[in-house]
Design a protein around this nucleic acid. Structure first.
Lengths: 233, 233
DNA sequence: GGGTGGATGTCGCGT
DNA sequence: ACGCGACGTCCACCC
């Protein structure tokens, strides 16, 4: 049995038991099996184990971890064939992640306290507030009546009426949109037209900073409209 | 000037200059400005700086970094008001990330070599192979003619013909699908019907493990079909 | 560089 | 738990 690996394992397990964040840097291979499955051969990577049950395997490249396990998983440290072996499992869906370290360059443990909340601005919610405060940005005479109004096709971002008494469905997007957003708006408009048994006209307006060419064509085909507007800030 | 902070900064900068992966654990606050903007007050977090220009700020919770910078950014270490300050920038879009450390518990540098490729199975591509090898899984008599066939509404996953000579559009999803996938399939079918000047019938089939209730209704409304099929493995 | 859609997407909210 | 849609989504691929 590799004595260093044994000590390393004890260090990792102590961190896990203490509810600390544990990082392991070393040469490892990784197996994942669950919703999909993957194999990753040997290489130098950073493993991050969080006290909430998250596991992240990061290579030298990319924002995304090459392998991971979401929060709520159980992490175990083992000695398998003399190697440090991290075994992480979850249920619903059943998923396992196994990281085998041929060598470990460093193990670190961190006691974490973090009470601060992240505050973000420039989101779709901010755009919604902007429209609700100044409905004329969408169109003169537009009057919002509800947000998240339910329809058979899902919840409409802003539901209201125009100056002529027509129903208006507003779909908000914080950034430039493609065909998917048009499809979304179309589903809501179609559902509302089906639901309005009287002859009320239902208009659909996509509110976003800009649209792609294809999205613009789709809007025209469906008789939907577009208003250019950005989130505040 | 804080001597420790100065040494810490030198260590971080040396790692960045050497093209190593650098981790910093400590108490910090974070400012981000770009496509959106955010502020995060003091707390204990792990900062990961990758040689490809990625920056990740991880709290004790969650799969997602609380703040980040994607690959390709320039990282600088600074001493600002005696604190270690990491300043990361990118262009198109213009974005900045600033991490200010009130205290640093540990800095680590790792020289990384990783030649292995991740191999994943159970993806949509695997499902496509399964259908192409056994087209009858979709329907007896189905004959695939093309993958990624272009239409005015985008590329169709699998295009083919059925036993009666009708055109068939197959949209593949590796997992249970909702209304968005139906909208996608509908866009392709509508586009192809518009493009087929002869009277060819165009059928749309959604191939996925399962569908939600709402998606099922939408399929019925649009006269589209569903075939239950999972990716192999 | 922009468009388009996949992803082990994750995350939060509502039912 | 599942459905649904947002996300600073990221990411690969094609144009």
């Amino acid at each position: 049995m590799d004595h260093d690996a044994s000590e390393t394992r004890n260090e990792v397990q102590a961190g896990l038991d203490a509810g600390e964040m544990v990082t392991v840097f070393g040469r490892c291979r990784v197996d994942y099996d669950g919703r999909a499955s993957s194999e990753l051969g040997p290489g130098d990577r950073l493993l991050v184990l969080k006290p909430d049950g998250t596991a992240l395997v990061h290579t030298d490249e990319g924002h995304q971890p090459v392998n991971w396990q979401p929060p709520g998983c159980d992490h175990e440290s083992r000695l398998t064939d003399g190697e440090l072996h991290i075994h992480s499992t979850r249920t619903t869906p059943e998923e396992t992640l196994d990281v085998y370290f041929a060598s470990v360059a460093a193990v670190n443990r961190y006691a974490v306290t973090d009470d601060s909340e992240l505050s973000v601005s420039g989101t779709e919610a901010d755009l919604r507030e902007r429209v609700l405060e100044s409905p004329s940005l969408v169109e003169s005479g537009f009057e919002p009546r509800a947000t998240e109004r339910g329809t058979a096709a899902g919840a409409v971002d802003i539901y209201g009426v125009d100056g002529d008494g027509n129903a208006v469905v507003v779909e908000l997007k914080r950034r430039r949109v493609g065909p998917d957003a048009v499809g979304q708006l179309d589903r809501y408009v179609t559902a509302l037209r089906r639901e309005s048994h009287d002859g009320t006209t239902v208009r659909g307006i996509l509110v976003a900073p800009s649209v792609t060419e294809r999205a613009s064509e789709l809007l025209a085909e469906q008789g939907l409209e577009f208003v250019a507007l950005e989130p505040p800030e």
